[in-house]
Design a protein around this nucleic acid. Structure first.
Lengths: 346, 346
DNA sequence: CTGAAAGCGCTTACAG
DNA sequence: CTGAAAGCGCTTACAG
């Protein structure tokens, strides 16, 4: 039963069964050309010792491991949803999943992290990897699919249609009568952040509302980064009547700042986020946002990676997934039509 | 830059730097006894080739890997919370984390899965493992900490104080005036399921309310399993005025069945769950439940595992974490005091 | 049908 | 200060 100290190896099995490790290997892997009686002996030895082959040794020797990797730098609600989608896509596929997370996560050197771990895994352990929201472009000797790539990435990827989503947010606000709409941007290297900002600009331009660059704050998707930006926007005399934050995490902070400043949402200020994380529905008031099915992002990425590994992929290598505007309690028509004369000249 | 097909190995670096792989290894691992000029040469070769050592090869050769493993059979909200706690505990610890999930997750052979993968990882890849909600007792050649062990498990573990939590639920219901309280149990092999049921029994006994075995349904923590059980309980003429389900997932299904049968919650029926998953707060009405900080379960398990691996653990090997009753809209006094004459004889 | 041998990419005594 | 060699636990041609 060997609950002892040293793990049971193939040699232990071979010794007990009175055969070579080559033969044990053949039995373990169901190869042809082993006599029935030998198989029985080996099987019983395996059973007695509770042997399982070492994943590491097997991976090192074989070219194909049937293990796919996923590299992420955090475990937020976002990641959990992505993982559910990934697991669903991999269910019954014959591929197992290894998720690699490093302990310096909240520490200093996030930068380049994905690339380092991608490389450490992909040569040997995994047949391919999914990388979630990397800080830079990634490369690998085995197939990779990126969820939320950096701008101008050429690697296979899956992204939500952030441009359309953001456009709809602004159209929604304009439709309610808002004219001064603030924006809090995300980490600008990410394609997602760029598209959301671009959607904001385009929708305003299309409606003929002149863009006011001072209404745009530069956040980085970290919720905390939104606090000073929201404060700056809301403390000005000509404050916006609505703020669109590039992520729910940041939008939730805008809500807090508004409360702190005694502003009523949605009476004095409309707030919109992006992502539709579970917390958004729980906020007071519930947050209007854009749903970007993180589950589907994970599902499609895993599906694509699987086919890339087996060489069966036929579709496009850059997938854009639809988003959906979710209107909740945090948006309403502005109380006053023209908080600033100059801003309403359309 | 080698974005090509074959990964860059240590031999490639050695060749380019004009040294042996032994020397490259020394540089990579910062060992003493390499001349400054050689270090520089090797470093530059590493840089040029974008070399990263193979996790697999390194693990196979070394006894200590500084990688901890986590084996789970699902990625529900539960797991995501646990992971956050684990990552927090491991932050800056020098240990990385590998999560192993197999693709037959929703498939046939869940049973014994944890043990198989635990063994495949622990000999070589990981220095120790956390196993989440296993189906049986586990054993390993390296340290293991189980979150939510099976009953009578002797392995180091972390569990919520389910007994107290469940007791408080029933006391809460009795306090509201309920006397016929139904119970939907979880997978009975799990210690958590057993304790929750035991808490239910004890609280009734202590209050002198005779236990009615026909009021107990045998679920298995799978939400679906609660549906027929809830229906059976609620369709009887002497139906309970309250149902306590051993998990939020099952309690949410009870809510659905009640709605389907035209019963008002909490008017006609009070419902209580256990776990406090995010969805509980979103339910209509919001679910009264027991919070068992899954974040802390993960945190404590990782903390303990880390110390077990380094040999510094001093504390108890079986940890019990406090729970907290969260009263929300799904519980209220029963409308009718005595739906069944015999049941109220106290 | 079976085994001896080489080798996957590393690390670590052991010589020098 | 550096390299040749052995070996971690497996798999896979190659002989027989």
């Amino acid at each position: 039963m060997a609950d002892g100290d040293t793990p049971v190896t193939m040699s232990d099995v071979a010794r007990l069964a009175g055969v070579s490790t080559a033969t044990v290997s053949r039995v373990v892997n169901g190869r042809y050309g082993v006599s029935a009686s030998t198989i029985a002996q080996v099987r019983s030895a395996i059973e007695r010792l509770g042997y399982e082959s070492s994943l590491v040794a097997t991976s090192l020797r074989r070219s194909r491991t049937n293990v796919l990797g996923l590299v992420t730098h955090s475990f937020q609600s976002y990641t959990a949803e992505v993982l559910k989608g990934v697991m669903e896509a991999l269910s019954q596929s014959g591929f197992d999943l290894i998720i690699y997370a490093n302990s310096d996560l909240y520490g200093t050197y996030s930068e380049g992290w994905e690339q380092r771990h991608l490389t450490r895994l992909s040569g040997t352990l995994t047949d391919g990897c999914i990388v979630v929201t990397p800080w830079g472009e990634v490369r690998s000797s085995t197939p990779v699919v990126v969820i939320d790539p950096v701008r101008d990435s050429t690697v296979p990827s899956v992204t939500a249609d952030n441009l359309t989503g953001a456009t709809q947010v602004v159209e929604h606000l304009l439709g309610l009568g808002h004219r001064r709409v603030g924006f809090i941007a995300g980490r600008s290297s990410l394609a997602a952040a760029w598209s959301r900002e671009e959607g904001y600009r385009r929708a305003l331009a299309e409606a003929g509302v002149p863009a006011d660059p001072t209404l745009v704050g530069r956040g980085d998707f970290n919720p905390e980064s939104a606090i000073p930006l929201a404060r700056a926007l809301l403390e000005r005399p000509d404050r916006p009547t609505a703020i669109f934050a590039a992520s729910d995490g940041m939008a939730l902070k805008v809500l807090e700042v508004a409360k702190e400043l005694g502003l009523d949402v949605p009476g004095d200020l409309s707030v919109v986020g992006f992502d539709n994380i579970p917390e958004s529905a729980l906020a007071e008031p519930a947050l209007t946002t854009v749903d970007q099915s993180m589950y589907r992002l994970g599902y499609e990425a895993a599906h694509m990676l699987k086919s890339l590994v087996t060489g069966e992929w036929e579709g496009p290598r850059q997938i854009l997934l639809p988003t959906r505007l979710v209107v909740r309690g945090s948006t309403a028509p502005p109380k006053i039509t023209a908080p600033s004369k100059t801003a309403t000249r359309v």
